[in-house]
Nucleic acid binder design. Structure first.
Length: 487
RNA sequence: GCGGGUGUAGCUCAGUGGUAGAGCACUGGCUUCCCAAGCCAGUCGUCGUGAGUUCGAUCCUCAUCACCCGCUCCA
């Protein structure tokens, strides 16, 4: 299966889907660039998500499986936010670990966990207590990217590149409620770049240090939150299936209780069996988390921790004051129908745009055997993208470069462009070779102008996966393809 | 971060201590009425990067970067 992944990576490079960042300088670990086809594919993934979340959402009807109708609005917040955001969210403390390595047993321990860890050489002792232990000096691990505000900025002006987009939606909760007339329940959706200093970037774009997220925060009444959690969990899983991931490779996995984050009441992952994983293993595409009122309360009161009784309370510093004070703003919600004031609970479906894109690439990659012009079976590589995701929807190919066929084809190409449908015109090389080129970049349909076109104004449409062809009037094909893309 | 492997044309790879080659691809032309076709012509390389040894390094040595595999990590 490693071989399979190598072929996929090679195709991504060869056809301009994904390049290594800064390749001419030797590359940069954990960073990737999307080429001309890759940018279209990833945009289509993000568009499909945005349309599903925002554009197509009907706030006056009750979607199947939903407890009631609801509103959805979008947001695009800055990547760099007030440093206090990350202190209250818990990222600052969680992402700033001091670690020691033991050179004797190649193990790494958090400094504050050494006394509770077992030495791999002798489990009855702690790391550093065994004769053979060779612990390094504590080293700081900054999992958040640091940057500096202002040209002369010093230590006082440290800021962070966001490690998730979610906080922008919590911080803007009050702005949205005050300015848009939305009522709970409603969701705020945002897609954008996030940054994490992953210790081990690996597996192509799966674990990158700069990546794009598609996140939504759904605010609801505490009494309804579990229903909404189940609704979004099922709906998000179905979204991937609808866009072509196979049910054998996609799973919805509920987290075990001990796996839940400290604030989470329930979490499920949408996971995909990537080719770089062992058989039976799955990689996370999206996490759907029930976050309770943790986030809004954190930004009101300050960073929260769980006390011995299991309740979330503001973490105290040595001086007895909040360790990381919140904004002090009231982020509660007043329901003017029930006259009830409450802090909404949050359901968060958080997806990786690059991971989803990679899953669609892996799923699409197909090798089959098709007869050549002599009838002998030849290997064919094709990308079976869902038409909604395919970077190029249709290729227009004059069968031969004469008798007016290129002119008819070029006119058709321009009609597709005018209709906003990504199209490609190719009159070079033999027809079979051009079909294969399109197969390899996942173009769902090829339209061929042939001798008959000049007689009766019909062209052939060829299906990528089945290789079947049928004729359609040249003045109807744009509509026909447009209809297929809608359907 | 540790251990192992890899790095030569766009791709797949060959090769040698004396400054590089094949197939495919690509470009142009001719031919070609449906699935990687034929003929002709043509383009393409800081041999990952840097340093050392040497009269001379793509080849030997060291360092470094990137990718792959295993371990570790994964809020």
């Amino acid at each position: 299966m490693e071989n399979q992944m190598e072929k996929i990576v090679a195709l991504c490079k060869r056809r301009g889907f994904i390049f290594q960042s800064s390749e001419i300088y030797g590359g940069l670990n954990g960073f990737w660039d999307y080429g001309p086809l890759g940018v279209e594919l990833k945009r289509n993934v993000k568009d499909a998500w945005w349309r599903d979340m925002i554009t197509m959402h009907d706030e006056f009807s009750v979607p199947p499986g939903a407890p009631q109708s609801f509103s959805m609005v979008g947001l695009d917040c800055s990547i760099i936010m007030h440093p206090q955001v990350w202190k209250c969210s818990g990222h600052y403390d969680l992402f700033h670990d001091f670690m020691v390595d033991c050179k004797a047993c190649n193990a790494r321990f958090r400094v504050d966990h050494v006394k509770s860890s077992e030495c791999p050489l002798k489990p009855s002792k702690h790391p550093g207590e065994h004769d053979k232990c060779q612990l390094t000096e504590p080293r700081e691990f900054n999992l958040m990217f640091k940057t500096t505000l202002g040209a002369l900025g010093g230590a006082e002006d440290v800021a962070f590149m966001r490690p998730e987009t979610a906080q922008g939606m919590f911080v803007n909760f009050k702005n949205v409620v005050d300015t848009t007339r939305v009522k709970v329940p409603f969701g705020i959706a945002q897609a954008g770049k996030s940054f994490r200093n992953e210790i081990t970037p690996r597996n192509f774009t799966f674990r990158s240090r700069e990546f794009e997220q598609m996140e939504m925060e759904f605010f609801c009444h505490p009494s309804q939150s579990y229903e909404w959690y189940k609704y979004w969990r099922d709906r998000r899983y179905a979204w991937y299936l609808k866009l072509g991931l196979s049910s054998e490779k996609l799973q919805l996995r509920d987290h075990a209780k001990d796996e839940l984050s400290h604030y989470s009441v329930g979490t499920a992952d949408v996971e995909y069996a990537f080719p770089f994983l062992e058989a039976g293993e799955f990689g996370e595409l999206e996490g759907i988390a029930h976050r309770g009122d943790f986030d809004l309360r954190s930004h009101m009161e300050g960073k929260l921790v769980k006390n011995d009784a299991g309740q979330l309370v503001v973490e105290q510093g040595p001086d007895g004051k909040p360790r990381h004070p919140g904004s002090g703003k009231d982020l509660s919600y007043f329901d003017d129908q029930t006259r009830e004031r409450f802090i909404p609970h949050v359901i968060e479906p958080a997806a990786g745009a690059d991971r989803a894109t990679l899953a669609f690439i892996c799923e699409a990659y197909t090798e089959d055997r098709q007869p050549d012009e002599k009838g002998e079976l030849q290997e064919r590589i094709l990308m079976k993208f869902h038409p909604k995701l395919a970077p190029i929807k249709v290729a227009i190919l004059p069968l031969v470069k004469k008798d007016g066929m290129p002119e008819v084809g070029l006119n058709l190409y321009r009609e597709f462009k005018a209709a906003g449908i990504p199209a490609y015109f190719d009159q070079q090389a033999a027809i079979g070779k051009r079909y294969r080129r399109q197969d390899e970049i996942g173009t769902p349909w090829c339209i061929t102008v042939d001798g008959q076109t000049l007689q009766d104004q019909t062209v052939t449409i060829r299906d990528r996966d089945s290789l079947q062809q049928w004729r359609a009037p040249v003045n109807k094909v744009v509509d026909e393809i447009a209809a297929k893309l809608r359907g």
